[in-house]
Structure formats: C-alpha cells, structure tokens
Design a protein around this nucleic acid. Structure first.
Lengths: 205, 205, 205, 205
DNA sequence: AATGAATGAGTTTTCATTCAT
DNA sequence: AATGAATGAAAACTCATTCAT
C-alpha cells in the first residue's frame, strides 16, 4: 500500500468515524426528546460543537434522521435475512427472529426508538418511503411465518392472525423505550423471557 | 328559570360543546402527526377555522394537550377504580383491568396515542407532573397485582416481574396506534384475544 | 349584491391591495440592492413591518420575485400583443414596440431592473422557466420584425441582424436603470429620442 | 543571479500566476452567477480546490472582486488615455473609444459584466470608491466629447446630450453579457457595426 | 365567535472566514 | 499550497401567540 493510498484511506475513514459519532449523538437526542422537538442546536450541543458546524457533515436535520434510520434498517434486515436463510422450522424461526430483534435493539436502541415514534410521520415524505417498504416486508415476513406455524401445528389456530402479528411486533419493539445496554438483563435474557411469555403465557401452568 | 338564565346556560353549554369538538379535533391531529410537529394552524385547519381563532377557546397549545390528557386519565382511572373496588381475585382483576384498558382506548384513542408518544417529553414541564403521578400509580397497581397473583399461584413465578409488567403495559397501550372504532373487532373482542395470548401464550396446546 | 358578498369582496380586495403594496416595496428594494443582496428583513423594514410578517402574505422571498416578474411580463406582453395585432408596417411596428417598451419601463421600472439583472440567474430554477420562454418569444418577435423590415426596404440590409436585435433590446431595457418617473423627460419623450438615434443615428445629417 | 534569488523569484512568479488563474476563475463565476449569489465555495469548486484554500491567496471574497475590477479599469483607462492623447477629431475619437471599449470587453469580459452588475452595490463600501471615480471620469470624458462633436458639427444637435451619453454607454457595455471571444464576429467587427448603427442609424438610406 | 394581520422569539440553514495540520 | 473541520454571524423561514375589528 503506497503512503498516498494510506493517507486517502486515513482521511476517508476519519471522516466516516466522525460522521458515525455525530449520528450516534443525534440519534440519542432524537430518541430522548423526539425528532420534531429536537433542535439542531441541541444535537450540536450534545456533540460539543456549534449548530452550523453540523452542516459541514450533513445536508440537513432530515438527512441525519435518514442516515440513522437506514443504517439501522439495513443492519436489522441483514440479521433477519440470515435467520430466514437458515431454513428452520416455524417455531425455531420465530425464536431466532425475536432474539435477533432484541439484538437489533441492543445495537441500535436510539434508532429503534426514533423509528417507532417518528416513522409514521416521516414516511409522508418521499425521501422516507423506504420506511413503508420495510414495514410492509416486515408484516409479510411475520404473517407468512405465523401462517406456516399455525398450519404446521406449532401455533394455536384459534387466534386472529393479524392480532398475533401486532402483538408480537409491538411487544418486541416497544422494549427499545426502556432497554438499557449493560443493565441487569442482557438482550438475550430479555428475548428468552419474552419468548416464554409469548409462547406459554404468564398463567401458572 | 328566567329566559336570561336559560340563555346564559345555553351559551355556556354551547361553549362547552364547541370546546369538546375542538379538543377532539386537536387530539386527532396531535395523535396522527405528533404534538411537536403539529402546528396550531393544522389543528385550526382541521376544525375549519383560522389559527388565531383557537385562542378564543384555549389559552395555548399546551392547554389543549393538558385538557385532552387529563380528561382521558380521569376517565381511565375512574374505570380502574371501579375494578379495584370490586375485590376480585388476582386473575379476575387482571382480566377486568385489561378489558377496561381496551375500553379506554375505544373511548379516547387519540388521547392514548398522545399520552404514549409525548408524555415523557411533556412531563418535564411542571404543568404535566400529573402524568408522572399517573404513571407511578399505574406501575404500583400492576406490580402489586402481579405479586399477589404470583403468591396466590395464579401467575407463573419464574419470570421477571418488571418484565411482565412492561410486557402487559406496552402490549395493551400500543394497540391504540392501530385500533379503529367500528372495525372488524370490537374493543372487547380484542381484549379477549389479548388475554388469551398473555395468559396462555400462542403456542399450540 | 348581498352584504355577505360585499364583505367577501371587500376583504379579498383589501388583501390584494396589501399584497400589491408589499410587492411594490419589495421590487424597489430588489432593484436597488440586487435580489441576492437583499435580505427579507430589508424588504420588511422598507414596508414597515417585521421580517416574519412577510410570510403571512408570501411563501418565500422567491415567490415575491416570481410574482413581481410574472406580473410585469404579463402586462408587457399584453401591450406588445396589442401592437402586433394592429397590423402596421415594419417601421411603424418598430416604433410602436419601442414606445410600448418605454411605457412598460414607466409602469414597472423596478421589475424591469430585476428582470434585467437577475433573470439569467433565476431562470436556472424550474419555477422561473417562463423567463426563458418570454425571452425566446421576444427574440422571435424582433428578429421576424427586423427581417420583414429589411425585406420591405425599411431597414438597412448591410448589418448583422442578430447584432441589430441585441442593440435594440439592450438599448431599450437598460434605460430602466436610470429612468425616473416624473423626471425631466417622459417615457414617450425618451422613446421618441431613442427612435431618432436608432433609426437615423447621431451623426449630423 | 544566485540560485536562492532565482528560487525566490520563481516562487513569487508562480504565486502571481496562480493568483491570476484563480482571479480569472472567480471573475467567470462572479459574472455568470452574480457576485452576491456566488459563494466562495463555488469559486473554489470551479478552481478545483477547497473553499478555505482560497484564503491562502486572497484576504477575502471582496478583495478578489477588488483585484478583478481594478485590474480591468486600469487596463481600460490606459487604452482610453492612449486614444485621448492622440488628439483626434471628435468623430475619430468617438470611433477609437468605441473600438477600444470592445477590445476591453474582449480582454476582460467577466470583469466587465461584474462591473456592470455590481458596481452600484459595491461602491457603497469605501474600498470601492474608485468605481465611482471611474464612472465620473467616464461621464466627463464622453459628455465633453459629445459637446465638442456637436459644436464642431460632427454630431446632431437636436438630441438630449445626456440621453446620447447613456445610449452609447449602455449600448457598448451591455454587449459584455453576450460577447464570446472567438465567436463569429471579432471585437473589432462588432465595434464597426455598432458604430454604423450609432452614427447612421438602422433606417434604410 | 371568528377573522386577518401582525409580532417576536426561535429554528434550520448558509456562508465567509479561521486555523491546526 | 492546500485540506478539513470548525466558527459565528446572519440569513430565510416557522410558528405560537396577540389584538383590533
């Protein structure tokens, strides 16, 4: 590797690192205060720079949200796709998807909160249409899985499938609002208990 | 009753009716767009009047949110209090509370959404401290009930109680985001199915 | 006419009057300082209101320029079209067009200056494409007229037609930079002298 | 000459060359987009460097405009002064000045455009007062010449002298907006035709 | 009850300029 | 000579709120 090559990579990498830092800060602030209620100045304050300086790195407040959300979704779907490609049974797939979801929350907590709270609102703009696409694909994935599980006899067939879908979806993702990395329970611990509740219920056996 | 008296009551009543209408509109808009992202003008547009005209009825945007939320919470707690006063067993109480919750969603859907999405943010202001009080009381009510149910042998004891609490809380209230009055399933239908999932799980027996 | 009808017309008219006032002020400031160098605040100051208040009447600084320019162009073309419809000879048409042009300058001086100085720049945006259309039509009108005049023997044929076109065009419109309504010479006086220069030259006979 | 000396001269010369290159680029961009609407970044982009890098060569955006304009004016006046020193008759002087003007446009097209469009605005700052001085001297030169020509019987006496002055001034300089070096007509060709129009008019003899 | 014009504080964004490297 | 990250002041624009009518 020539020194010139190394330099170029060095600065490109440094820039990417800085962007990632700033996005992490922005995501944190967006998640805790709400996207609309967060001023660019608050993000900058949290990053220790001035408001205008953010515009050296990003085009707009919106483009920060965009990058935060698309990065999260790409990573989430990569995880889901690995699970789906494994060719497991319905119940094992469900378990793996839920574990994967909690791991996504672990890695992208503020982005998940942002997604939960703002995607309906953001998706009205053309730029964020991929949020709707993701939602649609998500619903298809789950309804197909639940239908397969019901027909295979893995899941109860006496419940409304749409209701089950929403139940699982909400249950999992809302957890991003209170999950804390490094807390008492790890993401995998929580996944395990959620699975127990969802599969077996809370009623004493 | 003198005509003068009747008139006064008539206008006072008419005023109250108009306020309620406007609050219902405002709640709808706040719920669908988010409180911070909703301008007073959007609310007024939805009500068919001009922005400034809302100030004849309300002091401020905040006071609209205040009235929407406190009305909802008062009504919700009235329902809960009736249940708690009935002296039922743990499991029956849980069932009644969940039914009651879905009925609250049925009556106050936009207010519930507003509460879900904005209470953390709003509660930073003195005026909305009652939101925190309500939350605290809510958590106490549920943890007490779950503890009682576990000790009575009604609920499983192998799960983390905090987790169960959050699971139920989130599961129920997030439904306000998709619930539609007059839809395929009534609030009581949904409550019944949610109870089945929460108590028995989705796994085939 | 019902009172209701009169009211509605009254307020709509009042609004139109106010808009026109503000646009006249804005045009004056844009013309004297340049569009890009003019801040919205300067326009507002000149109108005796605050910066933000302009946004009650107009969407943006750009939309003010838009309305100023399109109003001017519509009026200018109405005048030209009347001339063209009269079916005069080439020389009489030229005279009438030049008189009409100076009258346009008289009625819309700041708009003409704005057009002269900023249209090249503004026309890069989709919204101002009509400026290019107008320019194109203007050029076609003049080159057709000059060609007709040359073939009819009214105008010299030994000069480059494009050059003559530009000569006349620039000569006329640049006058907006120094013309003053109510000054020593009226618009028609200036037109007469310009015509003398353009047609006969400044050389002593 | 010592090598050290040669180096110093070499770098000084190289620096001057680079400055000239950058000024030419800046003038081009200022002319095409307008001074106020041109960001330093756009100039830098056009030069293939970053915005901040321009400040190694120039103090400020203003000082670029300053250098562009004063270089042009110095050169223009050197040409005019040569003509005036030649002691020609009024008509020959007019011809020579117009030829000289088109040669100035040929050599400094973007600077001329900048001068035309921005000098009124720039001249409000102390630093650019020389623009006003130049204008004043320009007007004096021309009005004196036109008066001399009228009294000598070279130019018509029935036209308003101020009007003639403005007519010639505008006519010539506005051509910088469309003139292209290396186009169909050379600067001298254009000068010749302009002279024909100005002196003899466009009317068929 | 509601209008319509305005206020004024605050928000997002822009941009000339600086400076350590 | 130039880069790249920042500054800081000012710009365009937004919006809750006021108030005379």
């Amino acid at each position: 590797m020539s020194p010139r090559r190394r330099d170029a990579e060095g600065t490109a990498a440094a820039r990417a690192v800085r962007r990632a830092e700033l996005l992490a800060t922005a995501a944190e602030v967006f998640a805790s205060q709400g996207y609309a209620a967060t001023t660019v100045r608050k993000v900058a304050d949290a990053a220790g720079i001035l408001g205008g300086s953010l515009y050296y790195h990003f085009d707009s407040k919106e483009s920060m949200a965009d990058e935060i959300l698309s990065t999260f979704l790409d990573d989430m779907w990569a995880g889901y796709d690995r699970v789906l490609a494994a060719g497991l049974g319905a119940r094992e797939t469900l378990e793996a998807l839920i574990v994967e979801s909690f791991r996504s929350i672990d890695r992208h907590r503020p982005a998940v909160v942002l997604y939960q709270n703002e995607s309906k609102h953001l998706a009205t703009s053309e730029r964020f249409h991929y949020l709707l696409d993701s939602q649609r694909r998500f619903e298809e994935m789950w309804t197909a899985l639940l239908a397969r599980g019901a027909s295979e006899g893995a899941f109860r067939a006496d419940l409304d499938p749409t209701l089950i879908y929403r139940f699982i979806r909400d249950t999992v993702w809302v957890a991003a609002n209170w999950y804390q990395r490094g807390g008492r329970l790890s993401a995998d611990d929580i996944a395990k208990q959620y699975l127990a509740m969802v599969l077996e219920g809370i009623q004493a056996g």
